[in-house]
Design a protein around this nucleic acid. Structure first.
Length: 248
DNA sequence: CCAGACGTTGTT
DNA sequence: GTCTGG
DNA sequence: CCAGACGTTGTT
DNA sequence: GTCTGG
């Protein structure tokens, strides 16, 4: 799945990659540890034309929700079934977005009581575009104009590299898929299914990182720094960049 | 009809 | 909002 | 995803 | 154990 990620790339560079108007970008600080319920930038189709980037709450709050805390359980959506789920079926037809990420974290279970975090990123270190859905929720009770826009990240089967750490991974959209994914209303969500295939095995690389990343309060470069794999008994081995090892 | 869920992952 | 379960 | 809380009454 | 918060 995808429950934590990193985004430190400048807004100007993201604008170039995602085809955004450079004069209309949100302020972005480097983020090494974006966690559910935090705000993060997503790219979506503009209401008139083009694309825009806006900050949204991670954890999709369906427009019909009475209690917005439901969003904390909607951080991922299975791409295989999103079109049928009440929480996502409207969004997948009309409100798709791309979630820029330098890379994401996965926790590999290394013993019954221990998990080792890994950082996964493009081999060429360019930002990734994760497939997302968004929604707009309005507080009925508050009376005020309390509007929250929020997003979720789609998941799919792991490719060969990811399979070694986890059984799910985020859907990653290549540049050739941006137009379709960010197009307006799609009548049949089956037309999108081909975008949900796991990325090619040689596009990503990964390395183990410190458990420093475990706490969402830690948001610094140490989160992505290569670290030793440490098992619960304390024996160690050095973390190589597994992606590079597999494909070099 | 109304009430209650609406999600994923991982673990057993 | 809409579907499922009772 | 992980971390951290998980409760009430009464008194200050 | 399970839920909420980040």
């Amino acid at each position: 799945m995808c429950g934590r990620y990193c985004l430190t790339t400048d807004a100007a560079i993201l604008a170039e990659i995602f085809g955004l108007t450079p004069s209309d970008l949100p302020e972005l600080a480097p983020r090494f540890n974006i966690a559910p319920t935090k705000h993060a930038p997503v790219v979506r189709a503009g209401e008139e034309a083009g694309r825009r980037m806006d900050l949204m709450h991670w954890g999709l709050i369906p427009f019909w929700a009475k209690d917005p805390t439901i969003g904390s359980r909607m951080i991922n959506a299975r791409s295989e079934t999103a079109a049928e789920k009440p929480a996502y079926r409207n969004a997948i037809r009309r409100r798709r977005c791309l979630v820029p990420a330098d890379g994401f974290y996965e926790w590999k279970k290394i013993s019954p009581k221990s998990k080792q975090p890994y950082f996964i990123h493009a081999r060429d270190d360019r930002p990734l575009a994760l497939a997302g859905l968004w929604d707009r929720w309005k507080d009925k009770a508050g009376g005020e104009d309390n509007v929250i826009e929020s997003f979720t990240i789609l998941t799919t089967q792991p490719n060969r590299l990811l399979k070694s750490v986890h059984d799910r991974m985020p859907v990653i959209i290549g540049p050739e898929g941006f137009d379709l994914w960010l197009s307006g209303e799609v009548e049949d969500p089956a037309d999108l299914q081909h975008l949900f295939q796991p990325v090619a095995d040689d596009t990503l690389a990964m390395h183990p990182v410190s458990r420093h990343v475990n706490s969402p309060a830690n948001d610094d470069a140490k989160c992505i720094e290569p670290a030793e794999v440490v098992d619960p008994k304390g024996s160690k081995r050095h973390g190589s960049d597994d992606g590079a090892a597999l494909f070099s």
